[in-house]
Write a protein that binds this DNA or RNA. Structure first.
Lengths: 245, 245
DNA sequence: CCTTCTCTAGGTACAGCGTACGTAGAAGCG
DNA sequence: CGCTTCTACGTACGCTGTACCTAGAGAAGG
C-alpha cells in the first residue's frame, strides 16, 4: 500500500516538513536498528577522498564504497548530497587549534595568526575554499570559529554586524588566495601557456595598463610573504574605523 | 581506418598539442564548411539559460537545443564544457559601461562606481560570481576590465603586482557579497529556519561572542547601504599604504 | 512476550550529465 | 579533380544524484 505520508525533502526517516538544515535534524531518534555509521565517519571518509582526488571524486557512490555501505544507505544520514558537503566543511573547520589562537589583545597579530591557520587548513584540504564560498558555514565547528573571530575582533569596537561582515571579508580573501595558489600549482605547461597568452595580450597594445603593470611588478618573492602582505591589507581594512559620511 | 593523429584535448579541429586556453585558439582556420554558429552566439544562448534557470541548467545538451544544434556540434566551438564557462564569463563582463567609469583621479569614488557596476552585473547574472571565483577571467573583455582597474588604481602609487592583488580582493569581495545577497533571497522558509537555528545556537551558551554579536548588531538597513559600507572598507584596504615592516 | 511501528540497509532503476568515437558531407588547397 | 581539413551530429559509454521499493532490526506499548 503506498505511503500516505506527505512528500518531504527526502524519503528517509524524516517527519513531514523536516527541517532543511541538517544541523536542526537529530542524528538519530532512538528507534530502529542501530546504525552502522555516523555523520562523523561519513564526513571523514568523504574528506579523505576529497583530499586525495578532489571534491568531485567524493561522490555518494565513492563515499559509500569507502565505508563498505550501499550508496542509498548514506541517505539515512544525509537527506541530500549537499548535506554531505556541509558535514565535510564542518569536519575540516574542526581542525583549528584554539589553544594556539588565544586572543592577546593585539588584534592585528591575532588575526594574522588566525589567517595563517586558515591558509594551512585550505592547503591541507584544497577543496575547502569551494565549500566556504558556496555553503553556509554554520555547523557546530564553524560556529566555534565564528565565535572565536568575534572574540578576537572585540577590541575593534565594531558592532556585531560589522564584525560578521569583516569575517566574511577575511575568510573570503583567504579562500580566494588559497585557490589562487592551487591554480598556480596546476602545471608547468598550463602556466607557460597562461604567461605566454598574457604577455602577448600585454604587448598587443590593447591593454596599456596591463603592459605597464607587468613592467612595474616587483619580484614574485616567496608565497608566504605575498600572503602576509595581502593579509595585512585585509586586516587593515578590518581595523580601520569607517570613514565619516 | 583509425586516425593516426596523436591524442589532443579534444577530437575536434585541433592540431596536435592544441593550446588548452580557448583564447589562444583561432575561432576558425578558413577551410571546411562555414560554421552555423559562433562562440558569441553560443555564449549568448548559454547566458540566457543560466540567467533564467541557474548555471547548472546551462548544460551542453540544453545550450545545443536552444541553438537548434546537436550536442556534439558544440564541441567544434569549445573543446570542453569548461571553455563554454569561459565564454560565458567573458560575455557577461563585456557589459561594463566604461564611458560611465572614466577615471576622475578620485580613486575612492572611481572604485565605488566600479564596484556598483560589478554588483549590478552580478545581480543581472547571478551565476557570475561562481565563475569569477572558479575560472581564470582572462578573455578579451575580462582583460579590458583588468586594464581599466589598473588605470583607476594608478594614482595609488602601488606597483603592478600589488594592484593585481588589490583587484582580486575587490572582485572577490563583490562576488562574495552578491552571493550573500542571493542566499538572503533564497526563500522565507529557509531564512526563518536559518534565523531560528542561529538564535538557538546563540542562546545555547556555547557561543557567547555570537550571542553578544547578535545583541550589538545595528538595524539591517537597506542593501545598498550595507554594500557601500563594506565596499568602502575594501577600498580603504586598497588605498592604505602598507604598514612598514 | 507479542504486535505494531519506526528506522536502517541497500538494490533497482530513472533521468540527466560530459564527452569519445565514428560517419557523412561541405569546402579550401594545389 | 583529388586530397585534406573542417563541420554536423548520432550513438554509446561511464558517471552522477536520488526516487522507489522491499526486507529485516529493534524500540515501544499493551
Amino acid at each position: 500500500m503506498p505511503s500516505s505520508k506527505p512528500p518531504s525533502s527526502s524519503q528517509r526517516p524524516a517527519a513531514p516538513e523536516a527541517p532543511e538544515l541538517i544541523w536542526l535534524r537529530p542524528e538519530r531518534t532512538g528507534r530502529g536498528p542501530k546504525p552502522a555509521h555516523s555523520r562523523t565517519s561519513i564526513a571523514a571518509a568523504a574528506v579523505e577522498i576529497a583530499d586525495a582526488e578532489g571534491l568531485d571524486a567524493a561522490s555518494m557512490r565513492r563515499v559509500a564504497a569507502a565505508l563498505g555501505a550501499g550508496t542509498m544507505s548514506l541517505y539515512n544520514y544525509v537527506p541530500k548530497k549537499e548535506h554531505l558537503l556541509d558535514l565535510m566543511l564542518d569536519a575540516a573547520v574542526a581542525e583549528y587549534d584554539y589553544a594556539a589562537l588565544a586572543p592577546t589583545g593585539d588584534c592585528r597579530a591575532d588575526l594574522a595568526r588566525l589567517g595563517h591557520q586558515q591558509l594551512g587548513l585550505c592547503r591541507r584540504h584544497p577543496w575547502l575554499p569551494a565549500l566556504v564560498i558556496s555553503r553556509p558555514g554554520i555547523g557546530p565547528n564553524a560556529l566555534r570559529y565564528t565565535d572565536h573571530f568575534l572574540a578576537v575582533t572585540a577590541p575593534t569596537g565594531l558592532d556585531g554586524g560589522a564584525r560578521m561582515e569583516a569575517m566574511a571579508l577575511f575568510n573570503g580573501f583567504i579562500c580566494q588566495y588559497a585557490q589562487y595558489e592551487q591554480s598556480a600549482a596546476a602545471g608547468a605547461k598550463w602556466q607557460a601557456e597562461l604567461v605566454g597568452y598574457l604577455t602577448r595580450a600585454a604587448m598587443s597594445g590593447e591593454y596599456p595598463n596591463l603592459a605597464q603593470a607587468f613592467a612595474t611588478s616587483g619580484p614574485p618573492g616567496d608565497p608566504d610573504t605575498a600572503f602576509d602582505r595581502a593579509l595585512d591589507r585585509v586586516i587593515t581594512a578590518i581595523l580601520t574605523p569607517p570613514t565619516p559620511r
